[in-house]
Amino acid sequence: MPAITRQLLIRYFKGQCDQEENEAVQAFIAAETDPALVATCMQDAFEMQSPDQLLPLSELDYSNAWKQFRQKSGWQPAAVSTPAKQIRLSTWLRYAAAVVLITVISMAGWKTIRPHQQVADALADAAPQRIQAIKGVTKRVTLTDGSTVYLFPGSELLVPDVFNKKGRTVQLKGRAFFDVTKNPQQPFLVQTGALVTSVLGTSFEVNSNHDQQVAITVRTGLVSVHNNKNELARLTSNQQMLYQTTSHAFTVNSADAAGLCSWITGELMFDRTPLTEVCQTLEQWYGVTIQLNADQWRHKKISVKFKQLPLSTVLQILSATSRFKYEMKDNHIKII
């Protein structure tokens, strides 16, 4: 009998469990061991649906969609309310950190000035709120300006109290997809280490999950990337910038942005990706640990797509195509 975990419950409400897992979850729900956990996981499963389905909905349509999802799940606790489209962030998660803005954009064009001191002064006393996506679960957040952020499992977003009042700056640790509400008077900035990604209104991904590299991929619109005071590049749709954090070297290449960002709809796509990076992604996506000899597999690259598959199936596909064996015990996988 499989252990009941948060990840398993979410997969159950998304309809991704096999018969044995379904029976285990149904027994857990019937026993009313932890109804609050079950309710939370059902909400997470609902909010992990395609943004094309949820983002355009009015509050009434959103509420109706939630009711239909609950009915389809077959579990109807009276205490579960409709998830809010506009998420108010918990003040008790705050911790002190100053956010330094690197760039502003004038209406006449993209223009670098000296915003460092004035923004530091404005935000010095602001305590950013921390939003986390636990490993194994994506998280969808609507900010106060209407922008939507999808956090990859294991990622973290810092949002200052003055967001949308004194600028629109956030800090990211990990990987996230941003669908930014357009505001020519107030650019949206994402700070990741020494890099700042600046936009007016567009959709793009920032990925700093992999060692010593940050990838910025633009799906729509125009994005400016800065390092300290210098603008490094301007990216348009289907362009990707790879920045090496140690050498500060970078390249700009064409990319399948829709495919690379499709994880927000439950699909993982790898295009000639080193097996070591694939394993890092799977660790966060499924909430497991994967052990492999990096030197042995460093030259192996993977091109594959996975759409809402259980980890066991993913490992079977990878082992068949990459010709490796593996051992799996609980949440630990060892590639041989």
Rank of each mutant, 00 (worst) to 15 (best):
D34N: 05
A39R: 02
D52M: 15
W92D: 09
I105H: 04
Q43P: 01
Q86E: 02
S58Y: 00
Q117T: 04
W92L: 11
S73P: 01
I102N: 08
L57S: 13
L57F: 07
L101E: 14
K111E: 15
V119I: 12
D121P: 00
W110P: 15
I113Q: 03
L55D: 08
S58T: 11
P83L: 10
A36E: 13
K111A: 15
S63Y: 00
P83D: 02
Q53I: 12
W75A: 00
S81Y: 04
R114L: 10
S73N: 05
M107C: 12
A108M: 00
T112G: 14
E47I: 12
S63E: 04
I102T: 10
K72S: 00
T91K: 11
W92F: 14
Q86A: 04
L37R: 12
C41Q: 14
E59Q: 14
V80T: 10
R70S: 14
D61S: 09
V119S: 12
T103H: 04
R114P: 00
A39C: 14
L55E: 08
Q71A: 10
P115L: 09
I102H: 07
K111Y: 10
W66G: 01
W66S: 02
F46N: 09
Q53G: 12
A124S: 03
A96F: 06
Q118E: 14
L57K: 09
R94L: 08
R94S: 09
L55C: 04
C41M: 15
A108V: 00
T91H: 04
T112D: 13
P51M: 08
K67I: 01
A45E: 06
A127F: 11
P115S: 13
Q49N: 04
S81G: 12
A122W: 14
I87C: 00
T33I: 11
L93P: 03
K67D: 01
A31K: 13
Y62N: 01
A126H: 10
R94G: 08
P83T: 10
V104W: 05
A120M: 09
